[in-house]
Design a protein around this nucleic acid. Structure first.
Length: 582
RNA sequence: GCGCCCGUAGCUCAGUUGGAUAGAGCGACUGACUACGAAUCAGUAGGCCGCAGGUUCGAGCCCUGCCGGGCGCACCA
């Protein structure tokens, strides 16, 4: 085997290592030249169009840490796919007519007895206001059967678009969606389109999907048993189980609507929404669906592959959706419907103690607590970001007192966002995160701020280099440095460290492909962290500015410059910005 | 009851389709700022990889059983 591999391109020699191993030796000079100067990304798109759906927060309360995990994972997937060259559309589904919004509408109508005008006058953070109201309503509904009937009536009126309930739902959900988008913007997360459930209902997407499902006999009308009078779907791998799609009163369940939505995503419904601009910033426009013609000639959906970022608890329902596609004969699309599942974020007892909620005796005994909007158990995303910014601001101020107030605030925002994003990515997706403030507020060790700090210091070296030697690193970056530099002249230690650093840094593309294939970003996070550790150690051991030997000095600068580029690229993929100073 | 997930250092977690001596961070302990920024770096200690079988030349990883924890299995979303 060793002999046959002898002629491989870029391979210097092949050695038999024993124990069944072959060692391949790279032609080092060629490898270095290719990595440092020639090779750009060799990745290429494979899909016509990819839809990534993430965030999907019920628009009835503030976003919490669990939602942050979803959005960070989804946005990082989007960034990785785009880096690979894919055409990606980001969707954030808005369940603006669902029971959670109805609860809050009911709360405003019955508990608060507020008119729409009064509602508009509420001061402070509206999403926070609703957070509290939602827990009050939930408690009230649980204790009051008559209220549940009243709420059911409100739900029906909203679904049919009747005033005033539907106006409340529209006002509340839109206002809260704006709050969510503002929260996500703090983390550099944006969307292309916001498809609304209200649009799906009014444009009768479901009716069309229902027709298709009936025609293909993907669902059938149950005559007996518990599901009598319902339209149900049988599960392929669990034939004894059936899932109700249409209730006996003729209304469609959430899964049914989701099947219609999934069909639309693949362009299989033969119908599209209308769209209105919802927000715009830096030339990027976020569109929202509408049930009425709007005059805008824009279209979304019709993808060749779809990722749904939804927590693991919905695995079963996602399976039903995929089965729906399959039963309709769209096996290709079914195979390209990817449920990107991840475990939830729970709270440590210590964190719960900080958020002022009452716990039952049973809850007090647990080692962690599930986030619950109904019970008001959760760390709000904006609260977490505020605390991080406050801490970061204090740190920045003590280190860079000469910077302006605005400048320091800007940096603190970037650091806070980095801390959150890295925190959400560093864990494997099927590992449960037990959220703890002390851990999340840490800026040292394996954290986002550490990565930023590494990049900032590298930049600082480049800046000082330019000041001292009169030219920027870019000026001396040329293949000649490698061609003319005698790699053999390096000490054995530096040679070893240099090659290790270079080969490691060169692995970014491979890491991104792996992340996409496994939908696992913990590896990418780890890769970036390890690279930062290596380069920190490297420049600690091998100074640039103090080096008297000019070729060696330039060679080191070149090395750091390359690694800096890779780190910045990796950080960008994770949605982490690099501050000027910190 | 059935299905899915987790169990690796005191704590939080990695461990690449089974591969060479199981790795990080935090915490603990030692060192390094008159220095390209100490949010850093160098080092020390700390492991029956939940338990028991099995497959394999080789298992933290695959199979079976058990123990412990979590989540699903709505005419809720």
């Amino acid at each position: 085997m060793a002999e046959q591999l002898q002629d491989l391109e870029g391979i210097e020699k092949v050695g038999v290592a024993g124990a069944g191993y072959l060692n391949l030796y790279l032609n080092r000079r060629n490898f270095a030249r290719r990595k440092l100067f020639e090779e750009k990304s060799s990745l290429e798109a494979e899909e016509k169009k990819i839809i990534v759906e993430h965030t999907n927060i019920n628009p009835n309360k503030a976003a919490h840490v669990g939602h942050l995990r979803n959005a960070c994972l989804g946005d990082t997937l989007v960034r990785c796919l785009r880096y690979k060259g894919e055409n990606v559309e980001v969707q954030n589904y808005i369940d603006d007519t669902g029971v959670q919004v109805v609860d809050v509408v009911y709360g405003f109508l019955k508990l608060e007895k507020k008119s729409l005008e009064e509602l508009e006058k509420i001061e402070g953070k509206f999403d926070y206001y609703c957070w509290d109201l939602y827990t009050r309503v939930s408690r009230y509904l649980a204790e009051n059967e008559e209220a549940q009937r009243e709420k059911a009536e409100v739900l029906k009126r909203i679904e049919h678009g009747l005033s005033p309930e539907a106006d409340y739902a529209d006002y509340i959900s839109k206002k809260i969606v704006r709050a969510h988008l503002a929260t996500m913007k703090r983390l550099s997360i944006t969307y292309d389109v916001l498809p609304c459930e209200s649009s799906i209902l009014r444009l009768k997407f479901w009716d069309k999907a229902f027709q298709m499902l009936k025609e293909r006999q993907a669902i059938y009308f149950s005559q007996e048993g518990e599901s009598a009078g319902c339209w149900v779907m049988k599960l392929e791998d669990e034939p004894e189980r059936e899932k109700i799609i249409v209730r006996s009163d003729g209304t469609v369940t959430y899964v049914g609507k989701d099947i219609a939505y999934q069909l639309w995503k693949f362009g299989l419904l033969g119908q599209d929404f209308y769209y209105l601009p919802f927000e715009e910033e830096n030339g990027h426009r976020v569109w929202i669906s509408s049930a009425e013609p709007t005059g805008y000639d824009v279209h979304f959906g019709a993808a060749s592959k779809v990722y749904n970022v939804i927590d693991v608890r919905q695995s079963y329902l996602q399976k039903v959706v995929v089965q729906g596609l399959k039963s309709l004969g769209f096996s290709e699309q079914a195979a390209r419907s990817i449920h990107f599942s991840y475990e939830m974020v729970a709270l440590s007892p210590k964190s719960v103690a900080e958020i002022n909620v009452e716990l039952t005796e049973e809850e007090k005994d647990k080692s962690f607590l599930e986030v619950s909007g109904r019970k008001g158990i959760g760390v709000k995303a904006d609260d977490l970001l505020d605390r991080l910014e406050e801490k970061a601001l204090a740190e920045v101020t003590s280190r860079n007192p000469e910077l302006s107030q605005d400048g320091r605030r800007q940096i603190a925002r970037q650091i806070a966002a980095a801390a959150v994003r890295y925190f959400m990515l560093k864990y494997a997706r099927n590992s449960l995160i037990v959220f703890d403030f002390d851990e999340a507020l840490n800026f040292e060790g394996e954290t986002g701020p550490y990565l930023q700090y590494t990049a900032v210091r590298l930049r600082s070296i480049f800046k000082k280099f330019a000041e001292r030697f009169g030219f920027a690193p870019e000026k001396i970056i040329s293949p000649e440095i490698i061609e003319n530099f005698d790699l053999q002249a390096l000490t054995p230690e530096e040679s070893r460290d240099f090659w290790e650093l270079l080969v490691y840094a060169a692995g970014l593309d491979e890491e991104v492909l792996r992340a996409i294939a496994t939908l696992e970003f913990a590896g990418l996070a780890k890769f970036t962290f390890n690279l930062c550790q290596k380069v920190n150690s490297f420049y600690h051991n091998y100074p640039v500015l103090a080096e008297k030997n000019e070729p060696l000095r330039n060679f080191r600068l070149l090395t750091l410059n390359y690694v800096h580029q890779v780190i910045c690229q990796a950080l960008d993929l994770m949605g982490i910005q690099v501050p000027e100073k910190m």
